[in-house]
Structures are given as C-alpha cells and as structure tokens.
Design a protein around this nucleic acid. Structure first.
Length: 291
DNA sequence: TTTAGAATAT
DNA sequence: TATATTCTAA
C-alpha cells in the first residue's frame, strides 16, 4: 500500500556509508598482550579479523574456548583466583566504551525499532555488534532513557533555559546522535511515518537453530513518554559522523523475509584495549576520527 | 524459564 | 563518571 513504509528501510540503508567509507582500524592501538589474547595478528594496517569476544550468552557450551585471556587479567600469579582452572566462562570482559559511533548504532536501532519494541535484546541483535551483550545495551539504554527524560523535562518545564540541567560532559555522547522525533513523542508522529508495530528481526539466535519469539509480546504497556515540545536537538555542527567500520565478522543476523526485518549493516568495532594497573581490560570502540 | 527495568556497586 | 553487576518484577 504505502510505498513509504516499504522504502523507509531501504532509504535508511542507503544513508549508511559504503565500505569505502569505513574507518581504518587502528589495530596498532591494541596492546600486544591483548592482540595475542584475542588471536589478533599483528597487522599494522589492514583489518584483521575482529577479536572474537566471548559470546554473550551461550546456552550451549562451546567446549572449545575461542580464546582464553592469558595473564593479562590474571597477572600476578599467586593463585590468580578463579581463572586458573575454569575456562573463560566467568571471565570478566573488558569494559565497553560507548563511542559516538557505537551509540549512533544504538540510536538507529532504537529508532527503527520504535520505543515500544526497543528492548535490550532486540537492540542488541539489531546492532549486530559482536561482543555486545544484552547487559551492555540494557545499561546503556537505561542511561539513554534518563537522558531522554531529562531532555523532556527541560523542554517541558524549561526552567531557565535549555542549558540548565544539562551536563555537557554527560550528554555529550548522547548529543552526538540526534534523537529521533518518535523518541520524544511516541504515538503521534506528525511528519514521520512511524510503524506502529515492528516485528523484530530477531532470528539472530545462537549458532543453533533454536527458534525464539521474534516479536515482543505487547503484554505490558510501555510507559509512554509524555509528548513534549520538540526542541532543536540538532547539534551545532559536525555531529554527523557516520563513518562505519568494516563489516563485522560472522554475524548471524538474518533478515526475516516475513516482514521487514530490520537488519543493520554490519558493524565492526575497533577495539582498543588498555590494561590499567588494576588489570581490568577496557574495550574501546575506536572513534572514527571525528572532531 | 527468561527478560526488562531499575538500583546498586565498582 | 561511565559502565557493570545485581536485584526484582513481569
């Protein structure tokens, strides 16, 4: 019927940067130890296979540990604690750093899913960022919602100007990506074709063909964000950075032929890991060289 | 059971 | 502070 509905996704895809636009990885930033731990060949340039991070939730046990972190996390000796015998099952992963690019991915996924269907699991699947866990997304989503709420409060109450209550440092990340209008006033999209119901792509199950509900059951009522005046959230300038990275590795995200399953183009993360004195690894998505 | 959401911890 | 982890509800 409406071509718009059918095209919205295509159009959205088009705006995605081609592989040529992909940002060069800065693998060199990866410490030798990390590279070794992740089986990353020491390629000064080029794009080596992404670091196989331990799959988030593996219902099935992969008998073969893809990689085990050597002494980078354990270090020291003296027992090392839990890591001695046990495989990388309960290993702590490096802390994820949400770069503007990654956040952009996040926003895009949420935007196209709709607030209603934007749940951590779905978002995670749509983002197709390997290594991303539901927890990562959930945590970020939590903060993102607070951010949106804060913006609503500002525009609504307006007590003292938009600048009030705005933490530059805190909101800077979120400010990097424009907030879709539907986020602010769900249910009523003035000049935006908004899909009332978006069947989640899901389908991204583990290696196994275990079928899971691809759609979120509209059981509960999503708390509707009160509509508020649309205030110019567009960043001053130079906020549009959509340089993506090279396609991610194997990503079992397949689009559902049934309905317009949203599949975001592969996303790759450059990881730059640092090993602070604490020994806690830090996973960093390398920025695309924006300002 | 699993998952979302919020609270809390590091 | 940012993110992870934990806890509780649905």
């Amino acid at each position: 019927m409406r071509e718009e509905d059918s095209n919205w996704f295509s159009k959205w895809e088009e705006e995605l940067p081609p592989p040529e636009e992909l940002m060069p990885l800065s693998q060199s930033l990866i410490t030798p130890d990390l590279a070794l731990a992740f089986n990353i060949p020491n390629h000064h340039h080029h794009a080596p296979p992404p670091p196989p991070q331990r799959p988030p939730q593996s219902p099935q046990r992969n008998s073969s540990a893809e990689f085990d972190s050597p002494e980078i996390s354990g270090a020291g000796g003296g027992g090392g604690g839990a890591g001695s015998d046990e495989p990388a099952r309960t290993l702590k992963r490096p802390r994820l750093v949400w770069t503007p690019q990654l956040h952009k991915r996040f926003v895009d996924a949420v935007a196209h899913l709709g607030i209603k269907n934007a749940v951590p699991k779905t978002i995670m699947q749509l983002m197709s960022v390997d290594g991303l866990t539901r927890e990562n997304v959930a945590s970020h989503l939590q903060k993102y919602r607070l951010y949106l709420k804060r913006m609503q409060s500002i525009s609504s109450g307006g007590g003292g100007g938009a600048a009030s209550g705005m933490d530059p440092a805190t909101d800077h990340l979120f400010a990097s990506s424009p907030v879709p209008a539907h986020f602010l006033h769900p249910g009523r999209a003035s000049s935006e074709h908004f899909l009332p119901f978006v069947p989640v792509a899901a389908a991204a199950m583990q290696q196994h063909h275990h079928h899971q509900l691809a759609v979120v059951a509209p059981h509960h009522h999503p708390q509707l964000q009160q509509q508020f005046r649309h205030f110019g959230n567009s960043p001053p300038n130079g906020q549009f950075d959509h340089p993506y990275m090279r396609p991610s590795q194997q990503q079992q995200v397949q689009r559902m032929g049934s309905n317009g399953a949203a599949v975001l183009p592969p996303y790759v993360e450059d990881l730059e890991s640092s090993t602070p004195a604490n020994g806690r690894k830090v996973l960093t998505l390398f920025p695309t060289g924006e300002d």
